[in-house]
């Protein structure tokens, strides 16, 4: 019950803790597990530390309990479990060659140019707004023409850098129609703070009216 206000504090248009897609959801789950584990370990270590002040000296566990037992054994057990879990999550969210919808994001100082299927299915080029259908995984090809930027829609999933000279691919999916915010996460100069964009998620087959969206987001299609 205590967690309800805490969870409310976690929402926000750019919150990684308020996932709106499979990838972000898996990572948020990973975070909560790690937070719980970290809280337990911190409590345990601090308890050991406090006990050092209140107990009689010279009667205590053997040296090997501290070094091999806690230092190596305990730590390694936790790490193996966590790295395995992390790898499992990673395998489920990376791009695969399965013919998913492909869109592209091209970054330059300090704007985003997106190419995606338009209302008629033909490629549509837009500025700072990305249109994607709900409930369908898509791969986004991320490129840059000047410096390094980073494509990030926190509520959908992790970030991927836009590096001049290469094309990086990220796999994302949005659960339901709606509007999400995205930003450039890699410092890219004077305009870094305002290098934002919007992701419009529409019901498959019902491409939104561009002028309506423009009015809502303040962006020009």
């Amino acid at each position: 019950m205590v967690s309800v206000p805490a969870l409310a504090a976690c929402s926000g248009p750019l919150s990684t803790l308020d996932p709106a897609g499979a990838s972000a959801g898996l990572i948020a789950g990973l975070w909560w597990v790690m937070l719980l584990g970290a809280a337990l370990i911190t409590t345990f270590v601090f308890a050991l530390l406090l006990l050092a002040w209140w107990r009689k000296p010279a009667v205590g566990p053997d040296e090997r309990v501290w070094t091999m037992g806690l230092g190596v054994g305990f730590t390694l057990t936790v790490l193996v479990g966590l790295v395995g879990y992390g790898f499992w999550v990673g395998e489920r969210i990376v791009a695969r060659d399965d013919g998913a919808l492909r869109v592209s994001a091209h970054a330059r100082q300090w704007e985003w140019e997106f190419t995606q299927p338009g209302p008629d299915g033909a490629p549509l080029v837009t500025q700072d707004v990305l249109y994607i259908p709900a409930g369908r995984p898509f791969d986004i090809e991320i490129t840059s023409s000047d410096v390094i930027h980073s494509f990030w829609v926190p509520r959908l999933g992790g970030k991927m850098d836009a590096v001049p000279g290469r094309t990086n691919v990220a796999r994302l999916m949005a659960d339901a129609p709606g509007i999400h915010e995205g930003l450039c996460a890699e410092f890219c100069g004077i305009g870094h703070s305002v290098m934002r964009f919007t992701v419009v998620v529409y019901e498959e087959g019902a491409f939104p009216d561009l002028s309506e969206i423009a009015a809502e987001t303040g962006e020009q299609p």
Partner: peptide, 16 residues
């Protein structure tokens, strides 16, 4: 938190 950041998917969210 360093161990958390070593986990790739979480790093993709928390990085930068």
């Amino acid at each position: 938190t360093g161990v958390m950041l070593a986990i790739v998917p979480f790093n993709w969210q928390a990085h930068d």
